[in-house]
């Protein structure tokens, strides 16, 4: 199928881009001022352990060999040992990845869907009070400073009202209770998810709404909308079957372009809510000079963004046949 070759082409691009990012990161870590050995090897290790790690990472070799070793290590999942945790980096990262993906994907999908739905309403009632308030609302939430919004939500809904836990992803009492079933655990995570998710949702839905609104207004001027009306469709059918469907395409593009920006926000949100994801791990690693962990966390985040980009592109190609054929 055509779609399959499209996906294939995009995946190759992603592999190339990732390879370049990886190389850039390698050079940064090896060529930055200071001793790379100090950066990659935990100062508290015994000399024997340290020597072994230097050998594994190839830090005693010339740069080209180091690079080859670096690539090999990457494919073998060898990122060194975290200074702080004293644990292989890859284990820490794998453990956090699902948490980030949970928060990241739900917030992106939710904000895009709500943005599309509300943008449709705003455009259809252009100039009305609903339109004005939706537009102002999305301008304000779109530009509010994310960490501050997160703090405000914690202050009001967790601290003052006590509706949600202040931080974290799980409550120990639920998870340590042997009687708690899967459902109780899922509910517990959901409970913790509400505030971080709301933060990201509030930040993101506005841009989708504004894009949808203006794209819908443009689409309504298209000739095929006139055709649809001439066919005898009701206003609602015209709006939903022809206008909204086509107007949503730029929203998908916008979400794709905003992914890198979204992951920045994701890291900030994870940090404020101490949500155990890779973004928070990266911030944590940087503040604790845990270089191996920081490097791996960044690579993985870049990978998440790239893969999400491909998914968005494929979705776009699926929605717009003009791309596919």
């Amino acid at each position: 199928m055509e779609l399959r070759s499209f996906i294939f082409r995009r995946l190759i691009q992603v592999v190339v881009i990732f390879f370049i990012i990886q190389t850039a990161l390698f050079l940064l870590f090896r060529l930055a001022p200071g001793d790379p050995v100090e950066r990659m090897v935990d100062p508290t290790m015994t000399p024997e352990d340290a020597d072994r790690l230097v050998a594994v990472l190839g830090l005693d070799q010339p740069l080209w060999t180091q690079y080859a070793i670096y690539l090999r290590n990457f494919f073998q999942g060898e990122f060194g040992t975290s200074f702080y945790y004293g644990q292989p980096v890859v284990e820490i990262i794998w453990e956090k990845l699902p948490n980030t993906i949970l928060l990241f994907t739900t917030s992106i999908i939710l904000s895009a869907l709500v943005g599309i739905a509300l943008g449709k309403i705003a455009a259809w009632h252009k100039g009305s009070r609903t339109d004005t308030w939706l537009t102002i609302g999305s301008l304000v939430t779109h530009t509010v400073f994310l960490p501050w919004l997160a703090l405000l939500l914690i202050w009001v809904f967790a601290y003052k009202l006590g509706w949600f836990p202040i931080t974290g992803m799980i409550s120990e009492d639920v998870w340590l209770d042997p009687g708690a079933g899967l459902w109780a655990k899922a509910l517990d995570i959901g409970h913790h998810l509400v505030l971080p998710l709301s933060t990201l949702f509030l930040i993101h839905f506005g841009s989708s709404l504004l894009v949808m609104r203006s794209s819908m207004l443009d689409t309504l001027k298209e000739d095929y909308i006139l055709t649809a009306r001439a066919k005898g469709l009701t206003d609602k059918e015209v709006r939903n079957r022809h206008a909204a469907r086509n107007a949503a395409l730029p929203v998908v593009t916008g979400v794709g372009l905003g992914l890198a920006f979204s992951i920045n926000g994701g890291a900030l949100t994870e940090t404020v809510f101490t949500w155990p994801g890779i973004g928070r791990e990266l911030v944590f690693a940087v503040s604790h000079a845990d270089y191996p962990l920081a490097q791996a966390a960044f690579l993985l985040i870049a990978l998440v963004v790239l893969v999400a980009n491909v998914i968005v592109d494929v979705l776009y190609a699926y929605l717009d046949p003009r791309i596919r054929y």
Partner: peptide, 24 residues
């Protein structure tokens, strides 16, 4: 009018215009 449109009075649009929905 909605019932009447197309059923009794139809229209031939200019094809150079975007009279057909591009994604259907």
């Amino acid at each position: 009018m909605q019932r009447l449109r197309w059923n009794e009075i139809a229209m031939i649009f200019q094809a150079a215009m975007n009279a057909l929905n591009p994604v259907q």
